[in-house]
Design a protein around this nucleic acid. Structure first.
Lengths: 219, 219
DNA sequence: GCGTGTGAAATGCTTCACAGCG
DNA sequence: CGCTGTGAAGCATTTCACACGC
């Protein structure tokens, strides 16, 4: 199977390629993508291998061709429908971000348990009541859920959406979710992340990082 | 040096221990923390080793003692001052989250380049003008910056804050930042993360994950 | 020569397994 | 016994280095 980190980087390359295509660039070298993404050229090549590389020596990669290949690999043809749970600070920030996002990844439903939010429209998306969770997930064929709800509610909602057919969860609540083995959970704990950065900032004693202010050396 | 992943988990244990102490629990076993955090008991023990373990066989860890030890290890005594750049969707979501956060990690300044925001107060924090960046960072002894600004502005702001003495950056902009080698950058690209979760949700074919709906088996 | 694709080596992280203590 | 601390083994991911094609 494809390593998780590789999947992440492939998505990043995909976005970079979009930009390059937009800018009219025809071909790229692995070290170009490396410089733009913070990886090494060897890593870029190995990542692309996982998606079935189609580069040609000396010429590099055809931007359009590679982009097409990556999209086939990374995205569902029909696109992906996502449900958002919790229209609080974080949920409210995510909504506009993804509503105007690329077709292929759509927040098609937003839920909240606060009575006063139900029926109201936030960033163009109506807030639904929690009792509609199961029918909506099933009708709209939603496989992915974003949990932007309080820690105290997270486990219960996670169990409900898993039972309703969700197989991927992006969890912002600072708790570890117990879910069935066939469900993927990605945790983003803002508190932990910021604390980690502050910790690293205090240390700032890595003998040598390969990145520097200067232009990348490539290989 | 302590592995990055370990630092992350240590922060998570620290939060869990806070909860346990609050609940009046006196001691914990490594497998307790494992069950609560999604790690294995061996991993918990190894992580704690990095911070200088103080557990005792059969008795487990003294909650207060371990918490004290972890805090000494993870946090600066004086606390950490953080600057937020960009009071848009994401910045606005982070402000309330961290203003009411634990003492020891404080957003002490918020900047934005929009004229109309400057001088106004958002979630109790006044928006400062970008020309005040250097003096404020220096006066308030800020080492950590959150970049919640458009991709197009991120590199320039990153260079400015690094020059001003920042050594840790939490970057929400979907670009790879080129910074001096002694600066730590943590990237959270919401687009990439959600796309990855959707991708994983589509696959959901990991032969066997160790976590399941049932209670952890511990060792 | 220049850059890709890819075995093989190196590195880093996790899990195993067991000695030692309570 | 049950649980911690920890060498050593086991995996996963990254990097090296080089054959092949342009």
């Amino acid at each position: 199977m494809v390593p998780e980190r590789t999947v992440e980087r492939l998505h990043r390359y995909c976005r970079l390629l979009n930009g390059l295509k937009q800018a009219g660039q025809e071909t790229v070298f692995s070290h170009d993508l490396a410089g733009l993404s913070g990886a090494t050229s060897a890593q870029v090549r190995r990542d692309l291998m996982a998606a079935g590389s189609i580069g040609r020596a000396k010429l590099g990669y055809d931007v359009r061709g590679l982009l097409k290949r990556l999209r086939e690999f990374l995205f569902a043809e029909e696109g992906d429908n996502v449900a958002l749970f919790g229209i609080g600070n974080i949920g409210m920030a995510l909504l506009p971000y993804f509503l105007k996002y690329r077709p292929g990844l759509r927040i098609v439903a937003a839920f909240d348990s606060s009575e006063w939010k139900i029926g109201r429209v936030f960033h163009g998306r109506e807030c639904l009541a929690m009792k509609q969770v199961e029918p909506v997930i099933s009708e709209k064929d939603i496989r992915t859920a974003i949990l932007a709800i309080p820690a105290s509610a997270a486990q219960a909602v996670a169990e409900r959406v898993c039972a309703a057919g969700i197989t991927g969860i992006l969890n912002f609540a600072p708790v570890f979710l117990k879910v069935p083995a066939d469900v993927w959970v990605e945790n983003i704990d803002m508190g932990v992340v910021l604390e980690k950065v502050a910790f690293m900032a205090r240390q700032r004693i890595y003998e040598e990082s390969k990145e520097s202010f200067e232009i990348e050396v490539g290989d």
